[in-house]
Design a binder for these strands. Structure first.
Lengths: 219, 219
DNA sequence: TTACTCATGTAAGTAGTTACATGATTCC
DNA sequence: GGAATCATGTAACTACTTACATGAGTAA
């Protein structure tokens, strides 16, 4: 249940509305944890019911109202509890790698397309993450500044350093994915050189048991 | 919806019962995609209803029956369609990295514990994946042998090579995670050297807005 | 007879996705 | 007046988790 804790952590930088929180999930936090507003608003209501945040109704314009949420001591305690807690890691579930295991069902060109998409995707992510590292190092992000302004002198370097370390790790991860995809492209070239299969023909076909054409009942 | 396709791919090696499929998810496939039997049995029934697999009732012992599933042509077509399709990558959702962004809420010792757990976890995974690579290279896994036996001469090297490449990628990934955790441990040492904070004291504390101790209404 | 593996399910709950829905404010 | 942004929700659905439930077969 990390959405909850991501929200609590964001609110530690200061009161925010659901809309502002959702924007954070679209920008800075987005590349570590992603959540749509349809998940955020109900979760804020739950956190409020649990006493972990309090909402203040703020006027906007003449008729409008918005709700700014802030951390309570209970919310702060839950945030600390979560950070200290050692969780059992989530079970692996990687659609791209699962699929890569079965690229032989497509043609060499199909495999190449997949690897290229993978490479391009992680190049973009690498760029995003790298940018974020730079911003953190220069203390350019609003959220980090707010956190640093509220923090003890002694804590400041650690607050920034952990964030930099995390995003640097993500940059390394992205680089590894790009390298994997590039090695994949080389592999496809090698496989094709060693075979007579046309570049746009499936390399292998699934094996269907005889007489199992599926029920003629229609589906 | 990769569970479906993982099942179809596994069934391409030959007919299997739900139980046998679940075992595959506990062993070989487990470190790429994981699914409990409570998810597998209903999905097999759905695939049957869609005509993508057919079930055969096999006797076991004197009274027992078991259902062995095999691919239909529709199932095989769906498998190929999935492999060729380019999917939009899943939104990032990494609980460990999200938490690492906020290690300052714990003590230096807490951060060290987290990094050590991370390192140890990925060392184990690296080992599992490395073993699997070796087994694939030696053609020792049952599933791979069955696939190779059914396949064209020309396709054989590709079938094995894609799998080896995938698991080698996972090994690299695990190494990167171990390295990240080790750099994290170094970082904690450096941070501690530069500070007066005791090793078991929180580095920073969440900032609670004044007067927001939570509703006294109880929760 | 006891313990283990084989075998197949259901049920309740949580988390996440996608789409629908509405209205105010601000800036051009 | 219209478009973009601010702002807050609901509803239906899918995927996954955890726990409950049951029973046959096999080997010590």
């Amino acid at each position: 249940m990390s959405l909850r804790h991501a929200l609590l952590a964001l609110l530690d930088a200061g009161p925010m509305t659901g809309y502002e929180l959702a924007k954070q999930f679209d920008t800075s936090v987005a590349y570590v944890w992603n959540a749509p507003h349809s998940q955020i608003y109900p979760e804020l209501r739950r956190l409020e019911a649990l006493g972990m945040v309090v909402a203040e109704d703020l006027p906007r314009g003449t008729h409008g109202v918005k709700r700014a949420y802030s951390l309570t001591t209970d919310g702060a305690a839950e945030l600390v509890r979560w950070v200290v807690e050692v969780e059992t890691p989530a079970r692996p579930r990687d659609a791209a790698y699962l699929k890569a295991t079965y690229y032989e069902y497509g043609s060499f060109d199909d495999a190449r397309r997949q690897f290229r998409e993978h490479r391009d995707h992680y190049r973009l992510l690498q760029d995003h993450w790298q940018r974020h590292v730079t911003q953190l190092e220069r203390r350019e992000t609003v959220l980090l500044r707010q956190r640093l302004a509220l923090a003890d002198e002694a804590a400041r370097s650690a607050i920034a350093a952990y964030k930099v370390h995390t995003y640097e790790g993500l940059v390394e991860r992205a680089k590894a994915e790009v390298a994997w995809a590039e090695r994949g492209l080389d592999l496809v070239d090698r496989l094709q050189r060693d075979t007579v299969v046309a570049h746009d023909e499936p390399t292998a076909r699934p094996h269907v048991a005889l007489g199992t054409t599926g029920p003629p009942l229609g589906r």
